[in-house]
């Protein structure tokens, strides 16, 4: 078997893809060279940072039926599924709140400028149930402007993984939202407090893993990109990062955000009610908590030392 790796940036994130082909002569390299183009097509449709994207076009004219591509319909359908399963905690209707919080351009530009846009008064998100999809007619009805950042990376990673499945086992890492399929893959879960070394190593086979947190996409004293839809403001939470494992990459990503929104104990306790989900949280005082079933994915025992020893 031969393993091929490609690495590049897309969706404002680092993308790494491993493809394990049966023989050295297999088509691993030619296939992987196509992946940036696949992701570019998805980003052209779904990015809110591109004025010519399909999403931006839809956002300019809400509250009327509009034609939508299969990419848009499929990703929006996934976003609505995530909204339903998270009880509305992860909803596409947070764009106005994100802009009000200062996340009005790509985070790369926010980081480069050293500050975000002007802050406006937070506005609670509209009800996600008001979004309508007519897949037969290929059109959508949006009550307000939307952002698919809560589920788009997981959805895109799943699309790429499905395309690669015909060529061999693959691991698709889209900014830390990972789909591991076809064989067991090991993934490191990093400690946001000790970013040089992994805290845990997990073994995944036909599973997705996603991490959401307030430790990277943040600006100012208390502003970050995870919006509480009830207040329209960045969530007030004790969670620094939450990692969720689930068979579905969209739900892994959405559930991780939902855990962040609810806080460490309440979030993990809520997550434990979802039978196929397992989660791990780093909180602000340095604790690491997990659902009981997360331990089944750990491949190695962690060692602990007394601080200062």
């Amino acid at each position: 078997m031969s393993v091929f790796i490609t690495a590049f940036r897309a969706f404002g994130s680092q993308v790494n893809i491993w493809l394990d082909t049966a023989t050295p002569a297999a088509d691993g390299a030619p296939v992987l060279r196509q992946v940036p183009g696949w992701l570019a097509d998805i980003e052209a449709a779904l990015s809110r940072f591109r004025p010519d994207s399909e999403l931006s076009r839809l956002n300019r004219r809400p509250r009327e039926w509009a034609d939508a591509s299969e990419t848009m319909l499929s990703s929006l359908d996934a976003a609505l599924r995530a909204a339903r399963i998270t009880g509305g905690r992860v909803t596409p209707l947070v764009l106005r709140a994100l802009v009000a919080a200062g996340y009005d351009r790509s985070f790369e530009e926010v980081a480069r400028a050293g500050e975000a846009g002007d802050h406006a008064t937070p506005v609670p998100a509209s009800r996600w149930e008001a979004i309508q999809l007519d897949r037969a007619a290929g059109r959508v009805w949006l009550p307000d402007a939307i952002d698919l950042g809560g589920t788009a990376k997981g959805w895109a990673a799943q699309q790429i993984a499905q395309r690669l499945a015909a060529h061999g086992p693959a691991l698709v890492d889209l900014g830390g939202d990972i789909v591991a399929q076809g064989k067991p893959w090991t993934v490191h879960v990093f400690d946001p407090f000790q970013p040089e070394t992994p805290f845990a190593v997990v073994a995944l086979h036909d599973r997705a893993i996603a991490t959401s947190g307030t430790d990277y996409r943040r600006w100012g004293a208390d502003r970050h990109h995870i919006i509480d839809p009830h207040t329209g403001a960045p969530a007030r939470t004790d969670v620094v990062s939450a990692t969720v494992i689930h068979p579905d990459a969209v739900l892994a990503e959405a559930l991780a955000k939902a855990v962040v929104l609810q806080g460490s104990i309440a979030g993990l306790d809520w997550l434990a009610q979802h039978e196929r989900a397992a989660g791990l949280v780093f909180d602000r005082i340095g604790r690491v908590l997990a659902t009981e079933n997360f331990q089944a994915y750990l491949t190695q025992t962690q060692t602990h030392t007394q601080k200062g020893a």
Partner: peptide, 13 residues
């Protein structure tokens, strides 16, 4: 449903 793998103040190797 929730276990503590590391307490506050501990440093993991």
């Amino acid at each position: 449903n929730v276990v503590i793998l590391r307490h506050a103040g501990e440093v993991s190797a």
